[in-house]
Structure formats: C-alpha cells, structure tokens
Design a protein around this nucleic acid. Sequence first.
DNA 1: GCGTGATCATGA
DNA 2: TCATGATCACGC
Length: 222
Amino acid sequence: MKQPPPNSINELLTRAENIAGYTLSELAEQAGISVPENLKRNKGWVGQLLEWHLGASAGSKPLPDFIDLGIELKTIPISYSGKPLETTFVSVAPLTGVHSLKWEESHVRHKLAHVLWIPVEGEREIPVGDRHVGYPVLWKPSTAEEHQLKQDWEELMDLIVLGKVESITAKHGEVLQLRPKAANSRSLTEAYGENGNPIKTLPRGFYLKTHFTHAILKSFFN
DNA sequence: GCGTGATCATGA
DNA sequence: TCATGATCACGC
C-alpha cells in the first residue's frame, strides 16, 4: 500500500533512512511494480518509486512533493565514487510575463528552499534492480549557496527578458543552467524575441550542475 | 502544451 | 570521457 504523507519532517527522514541500503528491486516488490530493463523509456521511474515509499503527493502540480512540510524530494544518480552522474532538473523556466519577476518569487528559489536528496546508484552497468538507495540528505541552501543560485538565476532571466533566450547555452551560469526541457526538439512555447515581439521557441528548464550537487552531498558525508 | 519525474546519446 | 542538447512517459 502506498504510504500516506508523512506528518513531520522527522517522520519523513525516518522513512528515508529506513529505505537506505535497499535495492530498487526490493523496493519495487514492496510497491508491487515491476523493474524495467533500463531507464531509456522510464526516465522518471526511480523518482516515482521513492515517491511511493515516502508518501509524496502525486501529480504534476508545481508544488513541493511534501506540501505540508514544504519539502522537495530529489533522487540523484551517483557514480561509484559518489559523484552525481547527471544534472538535477529544478523547474520549467518562465519565458514570458517575467519582466518584474524577482528571485524571491521564483520557482527555483521555492523549490530549492528545502530539499530531501536521496542518492541512488546510477552506473548504467548496474542492472536497475540491483542499484542501492543511499542515505538521505536533508538540505537547505547556505547563504553562499543561495547567493550563487540567485546570481545565475538573475543572469539567465535578464537574457530571457532581453529576448536572447535562443542564445543561452548550458554554459551560462556557475551552478544553475538553462537547457531544453521538452518532449522533443519540435516542441514550441512562447518567449520574448529580440525585438520584443513574441517568438516560438523550445521550452527550457533550470538544472543544477553536478559540481554543485556534489558539494551538497560531500558536505553531509564528510 | 505544461509540468511532473528525470536520463539518454552523441559531439567536442 | 563527459557535459550539452535531446528525449521518454504520464496526467490533464
């Protein structure tokens, strides 16, 4: 049976600690679901499995996974040495109606205000079912970390407002980057053009670079 | 199409 | 080898 939402941060942490060390096949069996051969067509499978075990609110609403606790759940694939294998998706980037949007009101800040990180073995040579869940990390950005995030967010949003979204690459930003977030390269959404006129462009999302998430994990396990 | 969950796959 | 740009699945 799917877990009910946790009633407190401690309850959530305890649940997360209790699944640490298990393999994904063990957790899938408890959830009554099958383990895919690989994640090519099931990219969100690990995240959804852990949502089930921890009692995260389902759905595709732009809200924290644990609404009452204000906590966001992020699974993060790690290498044998404990380094993140992938960047971490944060949120879809707003491309219009953002002329006076401030960092304090941004989805990025709200999503990253309080995050429960759960490392999961992610090397592709490890069969999905054999991958182990790691020990959870409950994180709030430090003053310095939030400053870095704010700087990058403001730089990227400035470019968006100036109609330069199509000149933004993943190399912009020190810790936060803007990249496509779409079904495919034919997806289109509205954005500001260089003349201030509306254009159609690829939907984008904000992602955390791996060196940033690696530093978060290291600070907890050192 | 949007927003959720993310990882894939190829060029540099 | 690895990060960038592309992509997969689902609910609505």
